[in-house]
């Protein structure tokens, strides 16, 4: 397995001097292609900050993040945008949908941003909706869907661009356990069928345990990383 994300000495500090708050302290980790990783921790532990940094939504104070062996510091804003647009998918706890827009339009937003042609993006969006089992809701208003359906639309939006990595921030946080399980199953199916790397931020241990690997965070530090055998061996081999 190839390392996909390599993080070295990563720190993030909010504020300056006296009011400075170190949200992340000296994080080192490697995430391999096709892994399912749970970042676990209580609220305020720094797990969301870590995800934001991994997803290149935010800049670390110190340390480097390499994606596919490319140092993110060396990427220009335009290239970062392009990378997020083409390679990443996002699923958020609060969905973040345009409530008044149709389901289809919500799903094809990433393709609109990437300037995909009208016909192609409609087809890709319908395919993505099919994957999450909501192709019949394409022309519904996003606001008219139930919570579980909304999150499935968000997953469709996250996979419409065929990403390598999906970042899911508390994907089941707003859902009851039955619909939550459905959403989780969808995500793991994607991992299995399309080899999508999953990075899930959660405080739900049950969900975390379904992932191959759990990274526990507390006060901005990794307290426990179950690792994966293969990645561990590779790390050894590298040394």
């Amino acid at each position: 397995m190839k390392p996909l994300i390599e993080v070295t000495n990563l720190s993030k500090t909010y504020g300056k001097k006296s009011t400075a708050f170190r949200a992340l302290k000296d994080i080192n980790l490697t995430i391999n292609e096709g892994e399912t990783v749970a970042i676990v921790g209580k609220s305020g532990s720094g797990k969301s900050t870590l995800m934001h940094l991994l997803a290149l939504l935010d800049q670390p104070t110190t340390g480097t993040i390499k994606i596919n062996d490319i140092n993110s510091h060396k990427l220009k804003q335009r290239q970062l945008n392009r990378l997020r647009n083409r390679e990443f998918g996002f699923v958020f706890q609060q969905f973040f949908m345009n409530a008044n827009d149709s389901v289809l339009n919500n799903v094809l937003l990433p393709l609109k941003i990437s300037s995909t042609r009208r016909r192609a993006r409609k087809k890709l969006a319908l395919d993505a909706l099919k994957t999450v089992g909501l192709e019949d809701k394409a022309s519904n208003k996003a606001n008219d869907l139930s919570g579980g359906q909304k999150q499935r639309v968000c997953i469709a939006r996250a996979i419409v661009n065929n990403p390598k990595i999906i970042f899911a921030d508390e994907p089941t946080g707003n859902l009851d356990s039955v619909t939550g399980d459905k959403v989780i199953k969808l995500l793991f199916d994607l991992n299995r069928n399309k080899k999508v790397t999953l990075i899930i931020v959660t405080h739900d241990l049950e969900l975390a345990n379904k992932c191959q690997r759990q990274i526990h965070i507390k006060d901005g530090k990794i307290t426990k990383d179950t690792g994966t055998k293969t990645s561990a061996t590779k790390k050894e081999a590298k040394k």
């Binding site: 939504l57 990378l83 997020r84 647009n85 609060q94 973040f96 941003i113 990437s114």
Partner: peptide, 16 residues
């Protein structure tokens, strides 16, 4: 605001 955040997260540039 959130819509702007989402679009930016999905790779829309500031210029756009």
């Amino acid at each position: 605001t959130r819509e702007i955040g989402l679009m930016k997260a999905l790779g829309m540039g500031s210029g756009k």
